[in-house]
Design a protein around this nucleic acid. Sequence first.
DNA 1: GGCTAAGCGAGACGGTACGTCGAGTCTTGGT
DNA 2: ACCAAGACTCGACGTACCGTCTCGCTTAGCC
Lengths: 208, 208, 208, 208
Amino acid sequence: MCRRTTPRSRTGRPRSAEADLAILDATRAALVELGWSKLTMGDVATRAGVAKTTLYRRWANKNELVVDAVAVLFDELELPDLGSLQADIENVVFQFAALLERPETKTALMAVVAESTRDEPLRERIRTSIVDRQKRLVLEGRQRAQQRGELPADREPAAVEATDALIFDVVAGAVVHRALVSAEPVDGDWVKRLSALLLGGLSAAAER
Amino acid sequence: MCRRTTPRSRTGRPRSAEADLAILDATRAALVELGWSKLTMGDVATRAGVAKTTLYRRWANKNELVVDAVAVLFDELELPDLGSLQADIENVVFQFAALLERPETKTALMAVVAESTRDEPLRERIRTSIVDRQKRLVLEGRQRAQQRGELPADREPAAVEATDALIFDVVAGAVVHRALVSAEPVDGDWVKRLSALLLGGLSAAAER
Amino acid sequence: MCRRTTPRSRTGRPRSAEADLAILDATRAALVELGWSKLTMGDVATRAGVAKTTLYRRWANKNELVVDAVAVLFDELELPDLGSLQADIENVVFQFAALLERPETKTALMAVVAESTRDEPLRERIRTSIVDRQKRLVLEGRQRAQQRGELPADREPAAVEATDALIFDVVAGAVVHRALVSAEPVDGDWVKRLSALLLGGLSAAAER
Amino acid sequence: MCRRTTPRSRTGRPRSAEADLAILDATRAALVELGWSKLTMGDVATRAGVAKTTLYRRWANKNELVVDAVAVLFDELELPDLGSLQADIENVVFQFAALLERPETKTALMAVVAESTRDEPLRERIRTSIVDRQKRLVLEGRQRAQQRGELPADREPAAVEATDALIFDVVAGAVVHRALVSAEPVDGDWVKRLSALLLGGLSAAAER
DNA sequence: GGCTAAGCGAGACGGTACGTCGAGTCTTGGT
DNA sequence: ACCAAGACTCGACGTACCGTCTCGCTTAGCC
């Protein structure tokens, strides 16, 4: 979580663990109230009852702090076995949509992605802290569907991986676009249509 | 294009039309060189050979200016008839990906979307200037495919509209997510897989 | 009054005389309400129901306008014959003090003098519009006192002129300093002491 | 000197004392080069090698800064015992005139007095920083003359105080008016006439 | 009575300075 | 070594006013 890359000295006063939590909580609270662009480091420090220095000792800048503050929310996503691929897809789409409805996620996610187009370390941090962690959902869902026989067993690994990546971009991208760009609700009807499209597409691919 | 809402006074010196163009050009140039977050109003004004006040007389803030500057780029997207739905899809995806590769679009699009989550007028501006204008591509492509017989003729209009919206979010969302979040190339292989998925999904839906 | 130095063309629409008065009135009103430093040309124009252009066609800048607006107030000073030099002095001091109590004079006079230390044309304008016009009071008062026999008749003109100038600086300077710098009231007691000082000093000089 | 009114926090980085001096020096330099009205806070900050915010942290505005910068110059005035009241008067008048010849004083003094007519805190600051500090010269000169027997010993204190105040306003006012309004030189001849007037007036008052 | 040169209101224009705010750093004294 | 406090530099913000300009529209005087 903490961006300390150097191996951390053994002497001196150790960092306060409480401070880390307080800062991340304060960051999320500030995101909810103010949104990304009005959030300030000084305000976060005040909310957390901490000096600005303490923030900068732990995070290099605002972007990295916000990524860490928001990343943990994405770990809440789970994929309980609901018995069918369609149910699993619809469930995860709903969860993801609910996550994007939260004001802290809504305002922060696109902002840090935008910043990351010009900031390679930030992109890397986003990838490791948020993006890659969610790919497990696609992998798990696909494997479960194969076990159920809803999808054929793997043939060549490269194709499987490419399809996983595609599904990930399609699902995540469609939900984000629906929620933030089109600014329309991710409701039951829309989710059904999306999952139907995906299942149809995957089945068609499997038949060939 | 310009935010003139009041019907425009008849007296007084009229606004310079040249200035408008120079400002939008300067904005795009600054986006390319500096990216969204480093772009400043003062710098844009200098590049355009214009006073800062002239910018603020026309646009309320950086976001609205950037939306206008970038919007015109999206109008370049076209949908020539390539003879098959698959070819049309692949073509438009490529065009869209190429657009998102341009540094001015890449850095600006996500940023203004992020801001729009807390700024209703901005969201409206984005919708009318950018988003809604591109929905025509989905509509046109679908109609053409129906004429070719690749897709069944319309049944109920509501379902058609909902499917158009879904396809729009899926295509645009997937490309944006691939390009900006996953940060992986939108290459021929990926585009083929995406269009196969869509075609499969649409066909499956049509059969029911 | 108006700074037109070139001989003025005979053709074309003549300048509005009403506008001149309205502008000077508006300037004084603005001085009263806002003071020198908060007075703006745009505000004066609005008050006068006139375009800014019209101001600048007549006065080169804020300083010159204010000098003209205030100058006329100084012409109100009069020197009625009260029968004795002491009474005449006390009377003119009271008048001058009353003038400096008016908010428009108070705020404007020192300000334009301050500006004039770096602006030769302005200094010239102040001299001709305000300062020199008041020297007549000293001259008149002295001549009247000589006729009454309170002061000896002139000997050498240079000395007379030098004394006139001294008295002018002493009286005007003392009143201004009392009113604006010391910020204490120019009351009967103070005026009596000042006139006694002057009369004593002038008599002493006459005896030699 | 510095406007610190609250008793000063004990924690945090203390204010730089060097910065204070550098800023006041820079202010005087800017006054000399540019004059009051062209002096800008940004320019002063640059000259002092300091950020603009540092200026505003210490002084509320240009006026207060300039008063502080100029006040110290007035402390240079001294009243050495030259053996006679006349000599003492002429000396202090020359010193004061020389001070008003300096470009930084010339341009600043009237300007801040003008502003002070609409700004009570500024008036107070001028009084305590500049005006009251110079009244000592009148007091000292009068006491010395009494010791020499040139002036009678005090009778009632109120009258003495009133006369001191009068002399202060007359001398300071006359010199300022001569130098800045009449814009004529404070030369030996004029000074002799002024001191003669004062001595004559004081003697006449004493005889009664 | 039409021509014409200037005046006029309106308001946009290029500039310059304002005073504020936030980022990120540095310097205290104290833990 | 950590920490809270708060001053520091830097740079952008959005606003205000200056004095100029460009419109379209009067308005007086001379042909």
